[in-house]
Design a protein around this nucleic acid. Structure first.
Length: 492
RNA sequence: GAGCCGCUAGCUCAGUAGGUAGAGCACCUGACUUUUAAUCAGGUGGUCGUUGGUUCGAUCCCAACGCGGCUCACCA
C-alpha cells in the first residue's frame, strides 16, 4: 500500500470537499485576458492610478501568500513573471472569501481586478473576483531557498521551472538562439530540411551508435550519429543550400559537456569553401550573440570572452607550438613527436598514425587553452575521412574546427566530392573497423553512388547547439541547457 | 568504466564522540482588512538512500549495492 504523508492527505481532503460542494477543482472555462507583464507595461510608471481604471483578467500559480484574517496578499506567477494580488473580504464577498481561504501555495487560480499601488508602492491588482482553476496536491519547495537538489531539479524539471526563474530564462534563451540561427540561415536562402533519425548505416561522424530494431521490416536500425551523408545527398539532388537543426545520438559517456542526445545544426553550401565558412561562422555567431545579449563581450564561468572580429586562426601545428613545449623541427618528425606525447603522459599505441598523434597532442596541450574564439585549420587527412584534401598538401584537409571557452563548438570543411577518393577512404575505415575500432565509419555504397552522379563542390559545417547555449547563458553543465537530461532510472 | 564527495520531514539544512532525531519554510488550529522570506500563539509531520555486518543497542562504525554531483577516460 502506498504511504501517503499527512500533507498530501490534507490536500486530497480539500479536493474531496470541493467535489462534495459541487465545485470542480479542475475547470477549463477560464480565459485570462492579460499576463503579468501587461500590467507593468500599462501602469509600471503611473504613480496615481485612477480608481476606475481598466479591469485585468489574469491566471497563474500561487507562489506566496500573506493572510490577515479578512484580507490577504498573494503572489501569482504566469508565463511572463510574478504579480501581486490583494484580496479583501469586502471586495469579493463572504462566500468567495471563504473559498479563497482554502487555496494553497501551488494552486492555479484565475482572478479579475483593478490596478492600484499598495502603501509600499508595489503595483498590484485589487481583486474583485477570484476562482480556483487547478488544485495542487503537492507542496512546492521552500520559498526562500527554492529547489537546489540537483537530482530533483533534473528529474522533476517542472518543479525546477516553477521555482527557479533563472532556469526558465535559460530555456527561453535557448529557444531564442535557435530562432535567431534559423532566421539567419533562411535569410541567406538556405532550405531547412529533415533527414532520417533512424538510419540503416550510421555515418557522418566517428562515434558509437544506438541500435534499435524495426519489427515489420525485420531490420536493425541505428539512431543517427550525424545527418551529414543525407544532407550531402541533397546537394547531389540539387538543393544547393540546406540546413537541419535536430538531434544526434551517440552511445558514449555522459559528462558536463556530453548528453547521449544532443542538438546540432548542420548546413551545406554548394560552391563554397571552408574559408568562406570561417567568415560565415563569425557573422552567424556575432549576430546571435549581439541579438541575444546586446553585446559581443560576455563572461563564461568567470572568463571574459570577446566575439570582436576577426577571430584568431591557427593551424593544428601552430596551436601545438604556441601552447605546447616542443619546437617546429621536432614536431615535424614523427618519432620525436611521439616521444613528446609520451612526455605529456599520453598512453598511445606505438603504431599510431602521425595524424592521429598530432591530434592527441593538440587535444592535450591546446584545446583547453583556446578560451577566446579561435579557428583551428589544417587537420590531418587521416582523421578527416569526409573532407576534401588541401591542393597544396594532401596530408591535410580543407577543414577547420571552431573553439571557444576551451571546447569544440563547430566543425567545418570543404566536402570531398571525388567518389573514387571517398570510396578509398571508406575502405580504410572498414579496415580500421575490422581491427576493432568501434567508432570507424561503415562503408556506405549508396553514398558513393550519389557522389558518382556528381555532387557540386561544397562546404559544410556542424555547430553544437547545446554548447553554444551553454556559452551564451553561462551554464557550466550541458544538463543546464537540456530540459530533460538523461539520468538513470529513479529508485525509491 | 575508475577515483573522490554526497544522500536526515514536501523543501532548505542542523545533529547524535553509538542510547531510535531538531530548526526554518510549507501544512493544520486560532488572532490579525496594505503585506513583501508579513507577524504572534499552539500543533501535525521522519522505517535518517537500501541491504547486510559489528554491538546489549546503529541514522551515526564497517561492507556491498542504489541514485546523484565533480574529476578522469571516450567524444561533439
Amino acid at each position: 500500500m502506498e504511504e501517503i504523508s499527512e500533507l498530501l492527505l490534507q490536500r486530497r481532503r480539500k479536493v474531496d470537499a470541493l467535489w462534495e460542494a459541487g465545485i470542480n477543482p479542475y475547470p477549463n472555462d477560464f480565459t485570462p485576458e492579460q499576463t503579468s507583464d501587461d500590467l507593468f507595461a500599462s501602469y509600471g510608471t503611473v504613480q496615481d492610478i485612477p480608481a476606475e481604471s481598466e479591469t485585468f483578467t489574469v491566471a497563474g500559480r500561487i507562489m506566496a501568500r500573506r493572510s490577515f484574517g479578512k484580507a490577504a496578499f498573494i503572489q501569482i506567477q504566469d508565463r511572463k513573471g510574478r504579480l501581486q494580488l490583494y484580496i479583501k473580504k469586502d471586495s469579493i464577498g463572504e462566500e468567495s472569501f471563504a473559498s479563497f481561504d482554502t487555496f494553497d501555495i501551488g494552486d492555479i487560480i484565475g482572478a479579475q481586478g483593478r490596478p492600484f499601488r499598495t502603501k509600499t508602492g508595489e503595483l498590484s491588482l485589487h481583486v474583485t473576483e477570484i476562482r480556483l482553476i487547478t488544485k495542487s496536491l503537492l507542496p512546492l519547495p521552500e520559498k526562500f531557498h527554492g529547489l537546489t537538489d540537483v537530482e530533483t531539479r533534473y528529474r522533476q524539471r517542472y518543479v525546477d521551472l516553477i521555482t527557479n526563474p533563472d532556469v526558465k530564462e535559460v530555456f527561453v534563451k535557448r529557444s531564442r538562439i535557435i530562432n535567431l540561427i534559423r532566421e539567419f540561415m533562411v535569410a541567406r536562402d538556405f532550405l531547412e530540411v529533415e533527414t532520417p533519425m533512424m538510419q540503416q548505416i550510421p555515418g557522418g561522424a566517428t562515434a558509437r551508435p544506438f541500435v534499435t530494431y524495426h519489427n515489420a521490416l525485420d531490420m536493425e536500425l541505428f539512431l543517427r550519429i550525424a545527418p551529414e551523408l543525407y544532407l550531402k545527398r541533397l546537394l547531389v539532388g540539387g538543393f544547393d543550400r540546406v540546413f537541419e537543426i535536430n538531434r544526434n545520438f551517440r552511445n558514449e559517456g555522459i559528462s558536463v559537456r556530453h548528453n547521449p542526445e544532443f542538438t546540432m545544426m548542420e548546413f551545406y553550401q554548394a560552391y563554397a569553401t571552408y574559408e568562406e565558412l570561417i567568415s560565415f561562422t563569425e557573422e552567424l555567431l556575432c549576430h546571435v550573440a549581439s541579438e541575444l545579449l546586446g553585446s559581443l563581450e560576455f563572461n563564461y564561468q568567470g572568463a571574459a570572452i570577446s566575439f570582436q572580429r576577426p577571430w584568431k586562426r591557427l593551424t593544428v601545428r601552430e596551436a601545438i607550438l604556441e601552447y605546447g613545449d616542443i619546437d617546429a623541427k621536432s614536431l615535424a618528425d614523427r618519432d620525436l613527436a611521439y616521444a613528446y606525447a609520451v612526455r605529456l603522459g599520453l598512453d598511445l599505441p606505438e603504431d599510431i598514425g602521425f595524424g592521429k598523434l598530432l591530434m592527441e597532442i593538440f587535444d592535450e596541450v591546446a584545446e583547453a587553452k583556446l578560451i577566446q574564439p579561435t579557428f583551428i585549420t589544417a587537420y590531418p587527412t587521416e582523421v578527416s575521412p569526409l573532407s576534401r584534401r588541401s591542393e597544396e598538401d594532401p596530408e591535410v584537409v580543407d577543414r577547420f574546427e571552431f573553439f571557444c571557452a576551451g571546447r569544440e563548438m563547430a566543425n567545418a570543411f570543404s566536402e570531398l566530392n571525388d567518389p573514387v577518393d571517398q570510396k578509398e577512404r571508406f575502405l580504410a575505415q572498414v579496415v580500421a573497423k575490422d581491427k576493432g575500432d568501434e567508432e570507424a565509419h561503415y562503408m556506405d555504397e549508396d553514398y558513393i553512388r550519389a557522389l558518382e552522379y556528381g555532387m557540386p563542390p561544397a562546404a559544410g559545417e556542424g555547430i553544437g547547439i547545446d554548447r553554444l547555449v551553454m556559452l551564451l547563458t553561462d551554464s557550466p553543465s550541458i544538463r543546464d541547457v537540456i530540459l530533460f537530461p538523461q539520468l538513470r532510472r529513479e529508485t525509491k
